[in-house]
Design a protein around this nucleic acid. Structure first.
Lengths: 332, 332
DNA sequence: CTGAAAGCGCTTACAG
DNA sequence: CTGAAAGCGCTTACAG
């Protein structure tokens, strides 16, 4: 149906080899021949068959990207950054959303692996004991999860978390609630460790809640627990939970940013759109995505490259949801 | 490097043909042979090379999905639905985010076309006069845009828009502002036509603003225009604009849901999380995505299928951002 | 600089 | 039911 190399060879009276070279390895061909071939190719509407090209070259020009949930606003910026960088480097991105299902991750990755040059897995849900299976699918880069011996782009929660705790302490809050993320989440372990350390360093009491799923509904549920506990400042595992928390508190007549201070994590686009605007720890998702593309392509190109590790920093973005502790203790 | 059909043939002492059939066309092979082959394949960790398979079969088991902007919360539910339906039908989804750039759409579609079995383009930004180029890339299905002679999944804005206008009129608003979407947007033309008709049918005055990009920032800008115009009720082209509008009004001390009523379109997940919660016209994105997959696969399987058209309905979801017109005219 | 040939890993008529 | 052969569309050493 569509125009092939052979068609162009026939039309120009050249061999398929020459046509191929004229199109994809221009230096190896006489300039005039090259231009003639290119003109005919254009006129005939030739589009190279990537599938055939992949079969011979062993390269697909595809990068696989696996994310837990596109609908979580933390991920779109990462996806966009990955796409932008990949496009700039001549690659196309194959995305899989695994809907937070750990079990799907390895399966999707294995299927993808066969048709992509490299894999990027963001915030993998795969349990520790099976992570090796994923890591074996090289070239692979993990974002937001440290995997021994594998390349990864990591986000250091410590700085941002310390700033958050310091901020709340400076506002006079005697105790801070932390809403844990999913039980077996690697990110939550990091954040939990960071908040514990920060609270003990700064000298404020820490009260933990959860685990909660990174979803608005979980935040709604958290709100009632927090209210009952008489806490004046809360740090949530992520913005989604923080947003749900705020929505429910608003609904119950508790004024966020006055009666209670709330801090999210991710600094997703929604945090500046909530009411009040949400103080949040900025996680450099876009940078992480771009870095991951570079890492995975390096891995794909140089077989001997040692898997490297990129560390990115977090920092607190103060907005309207945090304020000095209310003098009269809130009625809860 | 990895295990191929030939390796299994060697290991079992069978021919590649038989191994191939045992794996992908089981009925054509002796039951015992089949089981033996499958066991060996499993033991050797065989994963079929999809690229090679595509080259012979002409099928890629890939569906291409082109969306204007993943970060716009209207799209993730569509993407998830497309992925879910595609997976259920044995296909994988290749996603491209064109960042609202009309120019990229055709280019990306052409590149994708070569490696997918069919294309789904959501809310195409391509201008009318070049839409034919896109439509020629069959099998292709358009979501949210009517393309003569091409298959599409359309959303009927009329019902939802009528309900919105009726709702505002019933609340006593004498005039309604409409914030137009992008100038050359097909969806905006539909929505603009629908709101004009509804206002004239219901008998309320219509004041138009814009065009605005479907982005929060544009809504922020719109807020000041709306305030200056002394309007008590606004329908925005989409939720993003409505959300930006509300954020800015809140900031200026105008109470949304009291001083002014706001209605968005899309009923994206964020609309129930905003403060106040956003009354919005529900657009069935997930249904549209699933329907698009079915259409495109039908088209791919039966060459003679006439391009069909699926129509979906919209309806108003009332939340906290709309209320009776304030008695004392707001100071603006 | 150009061409003939082999091959990438699989599928699928065609024989037997 | 099984095998030998050809072919999908391209690339790439190997000759010339």
């Amino acid at each position: 149906m569509s125009v092939t190399l052979a068609d162009i060879a026939r039309a120009t009276g050249l061999s398929p080899s020459t046509v191929s070279r004229a199109l994809s390895d221009p230096d190896k061909v006489n300039a005039q021949t090259r231009e003639r071939v290119r003109k005919v190719a254009r006129d005939m509407g030739y589009v190279p068959n990537q599938v055939a090209r992949s079969l011979t070259s062993g390269q697909s020009d595809l990068i696989g990207l696996i994310v837990p949930d596109i609908a979580n606003p933390f991920f779109p910026p990462i996806i966009k950054a990955v796409q932008a960088r990949a496009t700039a480097r001549g690659k196309t991105v194959l995305i899989a959303d695994v809907d937070e299902h750990a079990a799907d991750e390895i399966r999707r990755a294995e299927v993808m692996r066969k048709r992509v040059d490299g894999l990027i897995v963001v915030s993998p849900r795969t349990p520790d004991d099976r992570l090796g299976e994923l890591a074996a699918l090289t070239p692979i880069v993990f974002v937001n999860r440290e995997v021994p011996g594998a390349a990864s782009v990591l986000v250091d929660n410590d700085d941002g978390m310390f700033e958050a705790v310091e901020h709340l302490a400076a506002l006079g809050h005697p105790a801070i609630g932390y809403l844990n993320g999913p039980r077996r989440s690697w990110s939550n372990t990091q954040r939990q460790t960071a908040v514990r350390k920060a609270c003990s360093d700064v000298g404020v009491e820490l009260v933990e809640f959860g685990p909660f799923e990174p979803q608005i509904q979980a935040g709604v549920r958290a709100a009632d627990l927090v209210s009952a506990a008489n806490i004046t400042a809360v740090i949530a595992y992520d913005d989604m939970i923080a947003l749900g928390l705020m929505a429910r508190l608003n609904e119950r007549g508790v004024k966020v940013g006055q009666d209670i201070s709330v801090i999210g994590i991710d600094d997703s686009p929604m945090s500046s759109m909530a009411y009040p605007t949400l103080t949040s720890i900025h996680v450099p998702g876009a940078e992480a995505g771009a870095a991951a593309v570079d890492l995975v392509l390096d891995l794909a190109n140089t077989s001997d490259a040692a898997p490297s590790l990129v560390q990115l920093e977090t920092r607190l973005i103060v907005r309207g949801s945090t304020s000095p502790v209310p003098n009269p203790h809130p009625a809860a």
